[in-house]
Design a protein around this nucleic acid. Sequence first.
DNA 1: CTTTGTGATGCAAATTTTGCACTGCTATCA
DNA 2: TGATAGCAGTGCAAAATTTGCATCACAAAG
Lengths: 300, 300
Amino acid sequence: MRHLQDYFFFKTIVEVGSIRKAAQSLTITSTALNRRILALEEELGTEIFERLPSGVKLSAAGEVFLHHVREQLSDIEKVKSQIADLRGERRGNVKVACSQALLPFFLPNQIHQYQELHPQVTFDVQRRDRKAAEQALRDMNADLAIVFEPENLADFHILSISKQPIYAIMSAKHPLAQQSSLKLSDCLQFPLALPTNQFGIRQILDRKASKALYTLSPVIESDSFEFLRYKASLGQCITFQIEVGLPVDLSFMNMTAVKLDVQDVPPGEVYVGHLKGRTLPVAAAKFAQQLVNILEHKSN
Amino acid sequence: MRHLQDYFFFKTIVEVGSIRKAAQSLTITSTALNRRILALEEELGTEIFERLPSGVKLSAAGEVFLHHVREQLSDIEKVKSQIADLRGERRGNVKVACSQALLPFFLPNQIHQYQELHPQVTFDVQRRDRKAAEQALRDMNADLAIVFEPENLADFHILSISKQPIYAIMSAKHPLAQQSSLKLSDCLQFPLALPTNQFGIRQILDRKASKALYTLSPVIESDSFEFLRYKASLGQCITFQIEVGLPVDLSFMNMTAVKLDVQDVPPGEVYVGHLKGRTLPVAAAKFAQQLVNILEHKSN
DNA sequence: CTTTGTGATGCAAATTTTGCACTGCTATCA
DNA sequence: TGATAGCAGTGCAAAATTTGCATCACAAAG
């Protein structure tokens, strides 16, 4: 969109913090870029950047303007997508910020399924923890967020909440593998491979443990669920995952998932949502609809 | 704002329904204007106008785009006003759509008062009945609406509701002029000068009359309150007005206002509001704040 | 039919944007 | 302390874009 070129340029400068550097990545001379900014400032009647010897930094007015620019750049996408939709094309791009647990299986499956129907729609997937996911929405870097146990829901418009029972994951030959249901205390006699406490699932487990007056002492802590799962497959280690984060088929890895008793360990919650007060582009809205359907059926 | 010139041009074309005519009022050639539209359509990937022998008409895609354009044009004003506010200038323009009753005295007083504090702020005042006021908000032709007894409140974000008792207005020498309170039936023995039934105040009076099983037969109907008031000053005619529509001082016109018993005729309501989901420009927000304060104090 | 209105288009002139070369500034480092 | 490197800003000429004129094609109205 040609009109918004200046907006895009401006946004790039903000991100890299220097007109010259931005000019390089925008394949334009710093001169031209500089002059566009000067013109912009003239129109606005204020400087939007402070000039420092090391580059530029947003002024107060610049902050206000930046917010507007971000809104604009994402709004025009929405309009284009609406128009494309009118033309019956269903093009578009969906930007999703997503908790790690959903990345390995759930989200790729969902996207695959959606693209079968709408091959013209492209996706950006960003791995973001709960705080960062919300920030991405606020900065219009994401249309949609899917987060497990979010901390702060201001600015967040909730489309769906889905209860997620927790599963213990272990080798198929594990002594507990044949149980139909487990309590957390059953697992304590085995070594635990747990995610670090930045993850919601770990916090849920810790909460239960401290209520029951014991502490979880993992033999392995990691911020990679994949690593934990593989580690568990090799011995007697147990690790944990939420329902929607489970691989579709564990058996071909010689592993099993056993549900933890929901009376014993309360399920966590997966939230799907977007920025409050925003209308989503058509493609993002339809995709969100699909996610909500799936998540609400799974929990029934 | 140079970027939005195309938007403004586009909007003008929509309004006049022809590229050539629009070009005239925009003081450019139809050629240039035409080509800008063609470029715009190329960027959007669809025609936004249907070409008719009599001019142009919005296509479906055009409608979507128009909505976006209106939002843009008003949004950038908001941003500019925020920035100006940051600079401590409190510049800006406030566009008010307002019921007739408030135009002669209330609104000019309020604006005057506001401009004493903020002389840099300019005002557009549009006389709009209840339906039209809402439409003006929707089209971003007004930031703020002040309406008496609105019919439809969808899209309307209410900032304040103020009860408005109705006053009978008559010559100071009128037989009823010394009463401290009146019932509507007391007025029936005198000729009535009433606003037409497009006005909320007339509807309230009619409603009361029909409940009490009589009809109001005015000797004069008019859509001008000023006319009605002057007419009443000349003889025994009685006319009516809401509290906030009363002149500050009636006595110098040799007239009096007597409040109708609120048990007899229920007060109407004045609504101040803006478009749902919109953030007002700073100046408009401050002015709205002032109005709300005044209206809520008056009713106490 | 002719006339009058509509939007579209080729081409040259007018205007705007761009890039180069260079300025002035300041912080960093030898 | 002085050299250096990185920053934004500016004068001027070249490049690119936008504009306006003349003119076309088309449809409706007289």
